[in-house]
Amino acid sequence: MAIFTVISFVLAWAIALPLWLGEGLRSPLANLLVTTMMFVPTVAALTVVLVIEKPERKAEALGLVPLKPAGRLIGYLIVALFLTIALCLLALVVGSLFGVYPADFTHFSGFRQITEMQLAQAGSTELPMPIGALVALQFLNVLVSALFINLLPALGEEIGWRGWLLPKLLKYGPWPAILISGVIWGLWHAPVILLGHNYPGTPGWLALLAMVAFSTIMGGLFGWLRLRGGSVWPAALAHSTLNAAGSLFIVFVAENGRFDPLHGNITGWSGWIVPAILLLVLVVLGKFTPFAPTAKTTEEHSYG
């Protein structure tokens, strides 16, 4: 685990170094480098599995299999997709209740304002369709991004964090596994968080502390999906969906509304409340354990 962690951190900093030496997140290479960085945990896990551990079932050691029972896997993939979207939306509701996210859930005034400004820059003066249809398209965009665009980079992280690392930590118990993996995952983001990613304008130490808390809570839920779903795929889809649905704040913000991501949205403390409660319930109910198919279950799904 130490070797895996060192490789993950060293490679992440190495990839992000051009941003530190150049224009930071304003660099034209920023998106490419951040995306490349997401594959580092898989490289670290592959190195440990292929060079050090050398298990017989390498794909299983990485969490890529088993894919049976197929019905259970599909069920947890569906949960991963829609639960993550729901948590992102609930984060906006809770943020609105606490007064840290200026919301307009009925008229979408801020989204209309942003869209009209973008159209004006393109030389247009009218919305191409009703605002409700544009909102629906944003949700469709989330689904497309989650299922097709973000999935591979998210898998690049999840093979390392939840596919390989989390099961290794379970021997210490659920809470230590959640906390240790969450802290490692959060600190791993330091090369880009300290440049302003996710928490622009926030002091570096506070932004990194927030990222650790956010990663611990959401990573715990991703871990539950990985353990109960039987493989890393539900966790990867949840991660992919989070990266897509985290931008839904644009749809529901009030006109001229501004907020601090340290306080509002799924990245802020108000957005952690519902996921944290859900994670607590899952652990207390004993659900943070690997799914172990019975002989009967394996036989019933042997052709699935």
Rank of each mutant, 00 (worst) to 15 (best):
N31E: 11
G22R: 14
L33K: 08
L73G: 06
P69N: 05
I78A: 15
L21F: 07
E23K: 15
P28I: 05
T36F: 10
I74N: 05
A59M: 14
T47V: 14
A59I: 01
K54E: 10
A44L: 10
E56D: 13
V43P: 03
E60A: 15
L17P: 02
V65D: 01
F39H: 07
A16T: 08
N31H: 03
M38Q: 15
E53D: 15
M37E: 11
L64C: 09
K54F: 01
I52S: 04
L50R: 03
L50Y: 11
P18K: 08
L21K: 15
T47C: 11
P55I: 03
I15G: 07
V48Y: 04
P41F: 10
I78S: 11
I15Y: 06
T47M: 06
E23L: 07
W13G: 12
W13P: 04
A45Y: 10
T47Q: 00
L21R: 15
F39V: 06
L50Q: 07
I78K: 01
T36N: 09
A16V: 14
T35S: 13
Y76V: 03
N31D: 13
L33W: 05
I78D: 01
L64T: 08
N31K: 13
L50I: 00
R26L: 10
I52A: 12
G75R: 07
E56Q: 12
L67H: 08
R57T: 07
L21E: 02
S27T: 08
L67F: 05
A45M: 08
K54M: 04
A30S: 15
N31Q: 13
G75K: 06
E60L: 04
L33A: 05
T36R: 02
I15K: 09
P18F: 09
A44P: 09
R57G: 05
L77P: 06
W13M: 09
R26T: 06
P41A: 07
P18L: 12
S27Q: 05
R26S: 14
L29P: 00
A14S: 11
L32C: 00
G22A: 13
R26Y: 04
S27N: 14
A45D: 11
P55R: 05
G63S: 10
V48H: 01
A59E: 15
A70E: 04
A45P: 12
E60T: 12
I74W: 13
V51F: 12
F39S: 05
R72A: 06
L77Y: 08
G63R: 08
L29G: 00
E53A: 13
L17T: 12
I78L: 15
I52L: 15
G71L: 12
V43L: 15
L32M: 09
L73H: 05
Y76A: 02
V51Q: 11
E56A: 14
L21P: 02
V49Q: 00
P18E: 11
G71S: 08
G75F: 08
P69Y: 07
W20I: 08
L17D: 02
G71Y: 05
W13F: 15
R57K: 14
K58F: 01
R57Q: 14
L19W: 10
V49N: 00
V34Y: 10
E23R: 15
I52P: 01
G71P: 04
E60S: 13
I78G: 09
T36Y: 05
R26Q: 13
G22N: 06
